[in-house]
């Protein structure tokens, strides 16, 4: 490099104080990022330093927790119901998750199509997206409790409440999958005289099928864990209710361990089935 070009590049390049070349120039966004990280670091240190254990000794508490976990997971035992009763209870929970996912998927498909900007008009799309955002902002448990006012605590309130939130979630997920679709495909079919429903069934759904399946399974998994919680919190029945009884009525750690294994097994099974299904869909 001759002297002139070195001089030229030095006017463009920025150097640090120790005369090294900077690769990340100082900007507002890096400044904000650094400030945020610094504040979070300070808060973390501060909260640990000032934590109030009240009468509990931290180390003794830790040891007790580990002992409890050990009792739960190394000596699982069923005391208040049989193996098959437990199995049946998990099936009920699974059924609750399946039903609400199915309802949610049906509603999600219809309103997802209506709220996808490339398939609907802007006004309808915005109205649906707005109301769906509101539905999603309220947690599932709260929806169940809201519907419990009319239906009473139990499975009906749980189904309606969970369906509500699932639909909200799937409408957004589906409509975003539809919006990913190449505009040209829709144009091509419209140009050949195809109607809206024909385009949807023949082009839009086949193109976004793998997204739809993955989102639906994702929601099924969420609904399964919500259904466990609903059994405990809303009296919806299923394995969640058994867990609630074991933990807060019988104080039976061994049984809690056994129930956890039940749920874990089913969750893993669900995951395996979901993966199998997805590979089948995305293959041919």
């Amino acid at each position: 490099m001759d002297a002139k070009s070195i001089q030229q590049s030095s006017t463009i390049l920025r150097h640090s104080k120790s005369n090294r070349i900077k690769i990340k120039p100082f900007s507002k966004s890096t400044f904000v990022l650094r400030i945020t990280l610094a504040i979070m670091a300070i808060l973390t240190v501060l909260s640990f330093a000032t934590i109030n254990f009240q009468t509990i000794d931290f180390w003794a508490g830790l040891v007790d927790t580990v002992t409890n976990f050990q009792t739960m997971f190394t000596t699982p035992q069923l005391n208040h119901f049989s193996f098959w009763e437990g199995f049946y209870a998990v099936l009920i929970t699974m059924g609750l998750a399946f039903l609400t996912t199915l309802f949610g998927a049906a509603l999600g498909l219809l309103f997802g199509l209506l709220s996808a900007e490339n398939l609907s008009n802007k006004r309808v799309s915005n109205v649906i997206k707005g109301s769906v955002a509101f539905i999603r902002a309220v947690p599932t448990v709260l929806w169940v409790l809201i519907f419990a006012v009319a239906a009473g605590l139990g499975s009906v309130a749980a189904v309606i409440g969970m369906t509500f939130h699932s639909a909200g979630y799937l409408i957004k997920a589906y409509s975003e999958s539809f919006e990913e679709l190449d505009e040209g495909v829709i144009e091509a079919l419209r140009a050949s005289g195809a109607s809206w429903w024909q385009i949807v069934v023949q082009a839009v759904i086949p193109s976004s099928l793998s997204y739809l399946v993955s989102w639906t399974f994702m929601r099924f998994e969420i609904n399964f864990s919500v259904a466990v919680a609903m059994g405990a919190a809303a009296g919806a029945g299923g394995i969640g209710y058994n867990m609630f009884m074991a933990s807060s009525f019988y104080f039976d750690l061994n049984e809690i361990g056994a129930i956890t294994y039940y749920i874990l097994t089913f969750a893993v099974l669900l995951e395996v089935i979901a993966i199998r299904f997805k590979t089948n869909i995305s293959g041919h």
Binding site: G184, V185, A188, Q202, P206
Partner: peptide, 23 residues
């Protein structure tokens, strides 16, 4: 079209028959 605008996940014959949808 320049970018063909076919439904990529469907078979060739299915895409061809899409031309009949208008009828």
């Amino acid at each position: 079209f320049q970018h063909y605008n076919l439904v990529e996940r469907l078979t060739v014959i299915e895409n061809v028959l899409h031309g009949r949808l208008g009828y």
